[in-house]
Design a protein around this nucleic acid. Structure first.
Lengths: 233, 233
DNA sequence: CATATAAAGCTGGTTAACCAATTATAGTAG
DNA sequence: CTACTATAATTGGTTAACCAGCTTTATATG
């Protein structure tokens, strides 16, 4: 995916315009699954934009499974009907930049699940990685240093141990944005860190002893402050 | 973002090689947050690959918040320490293609939550969109036609109504892959469709009457078959 | 007229040249 | 020696030319 999401608003608006024009073209010409779109060159001329712009828009629609480009041949409508095509494009166009509340809400949802699954499926190797991350975190905090990185790495170690590659990917996606917002809103002040150690240890122990419900419960407690903070913005 | 995920394995392997070389370079040169990386041209020469390849790798690391490119200036290490840098790059390199089981497991997790949240937060406009999707689905099924698209659009309408842009995005990301796998494994045969209507109606009614627990419960029942199917592959 | 064949033109993908803005360097005046 | 300016080199980003392969068309041949 190129969740190629990180372009400037200008570029992004242009891309949305192109995507909607492609949608209109598909509707107007009654293109069905398997039909070929006009070439990138023709589209760029018709829409009066550069071929690069057209390519980016097509690649985004390809990412969401709506189009398929075949080298030296053309770009084709994917095996998905006009109804779903219109519905999904509308959704894609309306996708907002994630707000902090959405990010945290989703993170909590994911982490309660990954903690539970990790307690069920963790390997000894997973456990070792978690222990390393936990020790690194503990040491930093005890030295009074900033430990946001180590905190995050412990949670990512859990995500890796949960044995679900999709959830692992999603955790990786939201992590940098979470960090950015944490720094912006000054979440996690120094006092919290000491309490954080104990909570991390409890989560670790629950996963180590393979107690899924306990792991979930401890993770829930760990997020208690964050949860409240997030809902009071 | 580019969860630019849809490249061939060859290209992807090359990208992973480049990413690991960038990591090695950061470690070897002890680059810290804010430090500048060598220029794209130098890296492409050093790694003996094209500049395009280097750019793609950098863009991926930028997507995960590890690097930051500034036009006419250079590419910089993000405000994230060497520990987190190494940990996250390792995770990124080991990211697997999602298996069907992971996809379904994640979808169920997301949809139980979005149904509950939609019951809490839906607007009248959201409800209207859901009704339209539901009616379209019902009609297709009653005519004995394939209704996979309409099914999917109903679920996406719920995701949109849940008021969480991150979950909405994640649903859009996994949907095309879910469809592909459904077609591959021939999930959802004709008989299921009739039962599906009733289940969809019950979910809709629960969200309409703003009963979050009921909505979640009905969604759970709706996924019962899929859940079992997925765990018996 | 049918069919095989070759050639011309498109296709998405890739590469190399170009651009504007920034940064480093050299020079000069004070 | 310092401070400021002008110039040259370097940067990521963009554009246009190029490429290999597929599709269609024209042509020749039976």
């Amino acid at each position: 995916m190129k969740l190629d999401i990180l372009t400037k608003t200008e570029t992004l608006d242009l891309q949305k315009t192109i995507i909607s024009k492609i949608r209109d073209l598909i509707n107007f010409k009654n293109l069905e699954p398997g039909d070929k779109l006009p070439s990138e060159r023709m589209l760029s001329e018709k829409f009066e934009v550069t071929r690069s712009n057209v390519r980016e828009a097509i690649q985004k629609l390809e990412f969401y499974g709506l189009l398929e480009s075949i080298p030296q041949s053309g770009t084709f409508v994917a095996n998905i009907g006009v109804t779903a095509m219109n519905g999904m494009i509308e959704d894609i166009l309306r996708l907002e930049e994630p707000d902090f509340k959405s990010l945290v809400e989703t993170r909590i949802l994911l982490e309660l699940k990954t903690a539970r699954l990790a307690a069920l499926r963790r390997t000894d190797e997973d456990l070792e990685k978690m222990k390393e991350a936990l020790d690194a975190y503990t040491e930093k905090v005890r030295n009074g240093e900033d430990a946001v990185q180590e905190d995050l790495l412990f949670h990512l170690a859990i995500a890796k141990a949960c044995g679900n590659s999709t959830m692992n990917t999603f955790m990786l996606i939201i992590t940098p944005e979470i960090i950015t917002n944490f720094e912006k809103y000054h979440v996690c002040d120094g006092d919290q860190a000491q309490k954080g150690i104990q909570e991390h240890v409890e989560i670790y122990e629950a996963i180590k002893s393979k107690q899924p419900q306990l792991a979930k419960q401890k993770m829930k407690e760990h997020f208690k402050m964050l949860y409240q903070y997030c809902y009071n913005i």
